[in-house]
Design a protein around this nucleic acid. Sequence first.
DNA 1: CCGTAACTGTTACGTTTGTAACTAACAACG
DNA 2: CGTTGTTAGTTACAAACGTAACAGTTACGG
Lengths: 150, 150
Amino acid sequence: MTQDTPNALLSDFLPFLLFQAAELSSRNFQHHYQSRYGMLRTEWRVMFHLGSTGDQTAKQICNRASLHKTKVSRAVKALENKRFLKRETLDTDRRSEQLCLTKRGTAVFADLTHVATDFDQRLEQSLGAREHANLVETLRKLIAVHQSGG
Amino acid sequence: MTQDTPNALLSDFLPFLLFQAAELSSRNFQHHYQSRYGMLRTEWRVMFHLGSTGDQTAKQICNRASLHKTKVSRAVKALENKRFLKRETLDTDRRSEQLCLTKRGTAVFADLTHVATDFDQRLEQSLGAREHANLVETLRKLIAVHQSGG
DNA sequence: CCGTAACTGTTACGTTTGTAACTAACAACG
DNA sequence: CGTTGTTAGTTACAAACGTAACAGTTACGG
């Protein structure tokens, strides 16, 4: 059922392409944290943020990762049960908790970081260094636009 | 908890950036099909594929959209209930069903296509035409790489 | 102070999802 | 044909999810 509207534009519809690229690359990666550490996708994302951008509260992770607070809340609980993470109520505001990886959690993050780096390098090879860099830059711009209410 | 591994690379970890970009742009768009037609995300994706690449079976949509067959099965059922789509068992293989949009479904697709096109154009404006085109091209390449088992 | 409003994080509940088991149809081989 | 294996699509069940309501804490205005 073709439309009067040119389909060329629509078959390139960005949200769709983004979803598919995200879904496929995520799927290719999830096997690692799932089989080795029994982690869920959201758990890996939370750990990723703690490991790469440092100790922070759940709220900060929500904002930075575009994740819902209940999702983060449950992931934090799961990571805590696995002894990958510990929480410490802030003295300055006792509603918030500072989250940080335990020694064990840090080791897991380091391990997965290696896999992630390999993964990223293979991607860079198949795309070419410049295209890879451009992609990263463009995605960041796109994220910024949308977050400020595009 | 910083690592020995350079974090510059990791904070640009592509699967994460892709997820976030996909999530944000999808969220910005979902309001339209949700409030006007009570459609779920997967229903919109299925309709999108039928509308833009023509009548096809559920299996074909699964492959093209990287969606799980149960997800597609349920979306098709929902779209059928809304009378947006009809199925016709193939004579050549009576396991498969050809899916095609009804008149009503086609109208809905046309309406949402307009919104999508506007959305896409605004995106193109904020990114610039060349960067937008590059992004599309790179994402397609990336999807191709992953689908062939990268 | 006291009451109201706002904010962080958790929990209850209904919906959506994925895994696995299933039905029905085809295909290949004796 | 009949048996075995494969494929398209559905369904049952448990896990994960989002919405909304919640508890505890802070901020502010009288």
